[in-house]
Design a protein around this nucleic acid. Structure first.
Lengths: 243, 243
DNA sequence: CGACTCATCGAACAGTGTACGGAGTTCTCG
DNA sequence: CGAGAACTCCGTACACTGTTCGATGAGTCG
C-alpha cells in the first residue's frame, strides 16, 4: 500500500473505501473491522492504550499486517473520527425553529464528547474532512434555511457555535477527569488543590477570587454562554429581517 | 526526588519553586533553565520534538539528570504552560470599559495561541493550576467590577469567553497548519481537498454546501462569534441594572 | 575525619510507530 | 495450463520514547 504522510491516501480511504486489488491472496479482515476494534480499545481503555500492536493482537494478526489495510496510524484515526461523526444526528432533521435545533445539536455534541473523551484528543490534530463531517456541516447549514441568512452567514454561525462547544468540551473533559481522580488515601483533586491554594495564597493577593462564594459548574457555564451567543445571533437575524 | 503521578509534587514546584536540599553536591542547572530550554525546543521544533533526551542534550547533561530537577515530563509541561500564561497581559490593567477589555484579552489570547501552537496541545491535558493562571483569572474577574455582576456571574462570563476562545484556537491552529502544508509537487491542502470533494460529491448530495460562495476565514468567524457572545452578556448586564 | 546525603549519568526496560524482506497465495496473461 | 506478477501476512529490526536502577563521586554536617 502507498506510503502516506500525504493525506491523499487517507482521503481516498475515507471517501472511496478500500480498493480491492486484482491479484494476490484475499484479506482476512476489513478496514471496518480495524476501525471497530480501534474504537473498542479507545472506548474501553482510553486513547493512550490504542497502539498498533495492541490493535493487531485484538484482531489476532501480526502488527505489520495492519499496514496492508491502512497506510499509517493517522489514517486509522481519521477513519475513527469520521465514524463517530457519522453517529451524530443530523441537525436539520430535528424538530423546532433554528434556535431550538442549534441548542439541541450543541448539547448533543457536548454530551457525545464527554461520553467519548478520547475523541477530543484525537480531533486535536488536523483531520482531513470525511464524508460524515461533510454531511453534518451541510445539515447544520440547512438549519438556517428560511432565516434570511446567506450561506456565508449561516456557516459563520455554525463555526462559531461549534468552536464554542469544542472549547467547553476541552475544559469539561479536563474537569471530568480531575473529578474522577483521587490520591491513594482517598482525597479528591479539589481537596488537594484547595488546600494547596489556601496555604499558599496570602490574603489580598487574589482579591476577586477571595470574594467568590462558589464556582459555576461546567454545565452552567455552557448553557449561559450558549444562551448569550444565540441571543446575539437572534438579534442579528431580527435586524436583517427588519432592514 | 519524590516520584509523582500525584500532582502534589508538581503543585509544589509551581507554587514554591524547587526545594534546596541541605546536604550533597550542588545542582549545576536550575529548573528555570530546564523550562527555558524546553520552551525553546517547543518553539523551534514543535512539541513533538520535545523529548527528555533532546532536552538533556541541549543542556549538556545526561537524560537521567533531568529527573533530579523535575519529577516527570508532565511536571515540566505544567511549568512551561504556567510560564507562558505569565506572559499574557493582565486583563484588568487594560484601558476601556469591560467590553473593550474582554475583546482585547480574547484577541490577545487568540493571537498568543496561534503564535505558539504547541501550547494548544499541551493545555489539552488536565493541568494543575499554577500561580500565573490563578493571577490571570483573578485579573479577568476584576474586569467586571462595577458592572453589577456577582463574582459567580463574572466567572461564568470569563469561562464562557475563555472556552469560546479555546475552541476557536483549536480550529485556527488546524487551519494554520493545513495552510502551510503542500504536496511534494507544490499543491496546497485546499487544492487537494477541493479537487477530491469535487470529484466525489455528486450534485444534490450536499445542497447547502453547494450553494456556498466562499467560506468565512477563521478571523471573521472569531470576531463575529465574539461580538454575538458579548452582545448577549451586555444585554444581561443591562437587564440586571434595570431590574 | 567520618557519615550521610545527594547530583550525575551509563545502562537497561518496556514501550512506541513503522520499514524490510521472505514465504506463501491468488489472479492474469501469454 | 503454467509462469510470473501482485499481493497478504508477519517475524524481525530500527530508531525512538519516558523512566528506573545502581554505581560513582561530590559536597556538607556533626
Amino acid at each position: 500500500m502507498a506510503t502516506a504522510d500525504d493525506p491523499t491516501t487517507t482521503l481516498g480511504l475515507l471517501w472511496d473505501g478500500p480498493s480491492r486489488p486484482r491479484r494476490g491472496p484475499r484479506h482476512h479482515l476489513t478496514v471496518d473491522a480495524l476501525v471497530g476494534a480501534a474504537l473498542e480499545i479507545a472506548e474501553q481503555e482510553g486513547v493512550d492504550a490504542l497502539s498498533m500492536r495492541g490493535l493487531a493482537a485484538r484482531l489476532g494478526v501480526g502488527a505489520a499486517t495492519l499496514y496492508t489495510y491502512v497506510p499509517d496510524k493517522s489514517a486509522l484515526i481519521a477513519l475513527m473520527v469520521d465514524t463517530m461523526i457519522g453517529e451524530a444526528p443530523l441537525p436539520h432533521t430535528r424538530p423546532g425553529d433554528w434556535r431550538e435545533r442549534v441548542e439541541a445539536w450543541a448539547r448533543e455534541n457536548l454530551r457525545a464528547y464527554r461520553e467519548h473523551p478520547w475523541l477530543v484528543r484525537l480531533m486535536g490534530a488536523a483531520q482531513p474532512v470525511g464524508p460524515h463531517a461533510f454531511a453534518w456541516t451541510d445539515s447544520a447549514l440547512r438549519v438556517f434555511d428560511g432565516t434570511g441568512l446567506t450561506g456565508h452567514e449561516a456557516l459563520t454561525v455554525v463555526e462559531a457555535v461549534d468552536g464554542y462547544t469544542r472549547g467547553h468540551v476541552a475544559k469539561a473533559v479536563e474537569a471530568d477527569r480531575a473529578a474522577r481522580w483521587t490520591t491513594p488515601d482517598g482525597r479528591t483533586w479539589d481537596t488537594v488543590q484547595d488546600a494547596f491554594l489556601e496555604a499558599h495564597a496570602e490574603p489580598g493577593r487574589y482579591p476577586a477570587i477571595e470574594r467568590l462564594t462558589g464556582a459555576p459548574g461546567t454545565e452552567e457555564v455552557f448553557e449561559a454562554g450558549l444562551a448569550w451567543l444565540l441571543d446575539g445571533v437572534a438579534q442579528g437575524i431580527r435586524e436583517r429581517a427588519a432592514g
